[in-house]
Design a protein around this nucleic acid. Structure first.
Lengths: 95, 95
DNA sequence: GGGAGTTGATTCGATTTCCGAAGCGGCGGG
DNA sequence: CCCGCCGCTTCGGAAATCGAATCAACTCCC
């Protein structure tokens, strides 16, 4: 339930999702997340740091931990579902 | 990405999660969701109704559609991960 | 019919969160 | 030295969320 709370917070899912491509700096990560507000990004990052989903490397770049990668794995079915969802909605929309 | 946006909104994940047990009325659903604000619950429900994840039955109870059940299925790996996460955090926390 | 209880749903003021832009100190290259 | 980039912070306004009161409709019981 705590997981649903943490990941249900705006941007957290997205951040983990964008972090899949490997370590990335603060500003670059922000860009990937639709230029979300830097203050909120910092806040979300500390939450994720806290939750051990994300770690900060010596060079200050952010990266997924093993746990974080686990979330990403667990998220893949959701990604697959979103395709089905999209096509269901579009089918629905056409005449 | 739209999926991450929809499900990243507060309570949406939780609502789908609580709806897994079958059709349920507005007030009962609200109770299950930590007595969340009724105004927000209504707003979330219309979003989910819109997205075809939830449907309203003739007797006004809310239930997951096929798509909604799909989300729930897709969420199960996440639930499994949350167990691993919890134990990782507790191991970390002891002495 | 009248009153009490429940239901789904709405309204509204207060609080929390989020946003966006500006700015901080630090660091490297020209 | 100066300029640009970096991670990060601050702050005022906007938006989302909350919480409690409230509504109309429906049921049950008398």
């Amino acid at each position: 339930m705590a997981a649903l709370d943490l990941l249900g917070r705006r941007w957290n899912l997205r951040i983990v999702w964008e972090l899949q491509h490997g370590p990335i700096g603060f500003r670059a990560l922000r860009q990937r997340c639709d230029d979300m507000s830097s203050s909120v990004l910092r806040q979300r990052l500390t939450e994720l740091l806290d939750a051990r989903l994300v770690a900060q490397q010596p060079d200050a770049a952010y990266a997924l931990t093993d746990l974080g990668r686990g979330v990403f794995q667990a998220l893949r079915p959701l990604a697959r579902w979103s395709d089905a969802w999209a096509s269901a909605l579009s089918e629905d929309g056409r005449d």
